[in-house]
Amino acid sequence: MTPAEALNESVITAPDYRPGLLRHIVLFQYLEATTPEQRQEIKERFHALAESERQGRRYVASIESGVQHSPEGKHRDLEHGFIASFESEGDRNYYVGEPLITNPANYDPAHHEFKRFVGQYLSPTGVLVFDFSVR
């Protein structure tokens, strides 16, 4: 992103900004007190974000999730993973919102609310986010 693009949120959140398949990986570590019912609600709310629309169209290509069960022992206490797919960096940027995007007109209010909701159930270092473009 160029410095000029960074200053213009409406440019970097446009659906046609840097088209191409992008994966947004989110990993959670829950507080010990987070119940199975709360974890299920988190999963359901995260998956519901795939129904979000902007400009009359769904902009999240897909969301997948699952609990950690690798036998390698490298999970760093992360317990639940989500992969959201987007068809452009603009769609991903619109989804991410704060801290990248500060104007509420340029980010998804549903995802913004989800981040507020889920924070109460996560350990202080309980989220890891990793994005990559599919080539």
Rank of each mutant, 00 (worst) to 15 (best):
Met1Glu: 04
Thr2Asn: 04
Thr2Cys: 12
Pro3Cys: 08
Ala4Ser: 10
Ala6Cys: 12
Glu9Gly: 07
Pro15Trp: 03
Asp16Asn: 02
Arg18Gln: 13
Leu21Cys: 13
Leu21Trp: 08
Leu22Met: 07
Leu22Glu: 12
Ile25Met: 05
Val26Met: 00
Leu27Arg: 12
Phe28Asp: 08
Phe28Thr: 15
Tyr30Trp: 14
Glu32Cys: 07
Pro36Ile: 02
Glu37Met: 10
Gln38Val: 12
Arg39Asp: 03
Arg39Val: 08
Glu41Ser: 08
Ile42Thr: 08
Glu44Ile: 11
Arg45Asp: 01
Arg45Val: 08
His47Ile: 15
Ala50Gly: 07
Glu53Asp: 01
Gln55Lys: 10
Val60Leu: 06
Ile63Gly: 01
Glu64His: 14
Gln68Phe: 03
His69Tyr: 15
Glu72His: 01
Gly73Tyr: 02
Lys74Asp: 02
Asp77Pro: 00
Gly81Tyr: 12
Gly81Val: 10
Ile83Leu: 10
Ile83Glu: 06
Ala84Cys: 15
Ala84Arg: 11
Phe86Pro: 04
Glu87Val: 09
Glu89Tyr: 12
Glu89Gly: 07
Asp91Cys: 09
Asp91Asn: 11
Tyr94Asn: 12
Val96Gly: 06
Pro99Asn: 07
Thr102Tyr: 00
Asn103Ile: 00
Tyr107Glu: 01
Asp108Ser: 05
Asp108Val: 07
Ala110Tyr: 02
Glu113Val: 13
Phe114His: 10
Arg116Thr: 00
Phe117Glu: 10
Val118Asn: 07
Leu122Val: 08
Ser123Arg: 15
Pro124Ser: 04
Gly126Met: 14
Val127Trp: 03
Val127Arg: 07
Leu128Lys: 09
Leu128Gln: 09
Asp131Cys: 02
Val134Asp: 05
Arg135Lys: 11
